[in-house]
Design a binder for these strands. Structure first.
Lengths: 114, 114
DNA sequence: CTGTATCCTAGCCGATACTG
DNA sequence: CAGTATCGGCTAGGATACAG
């Protein structure tokens, strides 16, 4: 067990691989958004909102913005009326998808199993 | 791509596998704690604090309590003076460790790579 | 050594209304 | 359709002091 190159004392959580990964996929919605994009990309804004159900426009918007800033999501705007914007995943996320799959599977197996 | 059995609209984030998994390993410290326990278990309270470095007693204590409540960590108390308490991982975490390894590796590879 | 008890704060997150 | 703006509650997380 090596956990990659995460070694030594923690001075700054943000500097640990875990801290970075959590900053990118943590929070209440990002994993769900990435999952849904992976299943249906490209997806339009309101489609995404409908699929998630309980999220507010504000949260969806802000989370997508952060994911885009972190290079996880690509936003494509079609200048037409009515507006159309499509979201899809970048290559950066590709290597993360199997890991997310693992998190999801672990969640399924261990939820309500205590 | 199936993402296990996570399907349909989200009514309650807590009910999604991602929501559950995040509730268990999310937050600022839990992944780091699990990682350190995996590397050195069993570990005493103050050893853990020293290894993490910047965490406060309160945070370490509360995070360990939550991990214990979630069945991730086993707490063993030795009734002696001075007190001695050892923390180790439960079997429940075993299947999660490779996934955490994946998160860590992804973090190492993608941090500072934008 | 192994924690608690208090107090405090930044910011996550939500509800609602509004806009090009 | 695809968002912003504004207001505010709640709570995760931190500083510090105390305790068995």
């Amino acid at each position: 067990m090596s956990m990659a190159e995460f070694k030594g004392k923690v001075k700054n959580i943000q500097d640990t691989p875990f801290g970075y990964t959590l900053s990118v996929i943590g929070g209440k919605w990002k994993m769900v958004i990435i999952y849904l994009l992976a299943e249906n990309q490209p997806v339009r804004f309101n489609d995404l909102k409908r699929q998630i159900g309980v999220i507010t426009y504000k949260m969806l918007s802000s989370q997508l913005k952060e994911l885009e800033a972190d290079g996880m999501v690509k936003r494509t705007e079609y200048p037409q009326i009515p507006p159309k914007v499509e979201y899809s995943l970048t290559e950066k996320v590709e290597s993360l998808l199997p890991v997310l799959e693992g998190l999801c599977e672990w969640g399924v197996k261990n939820q309500n199993k205590d």
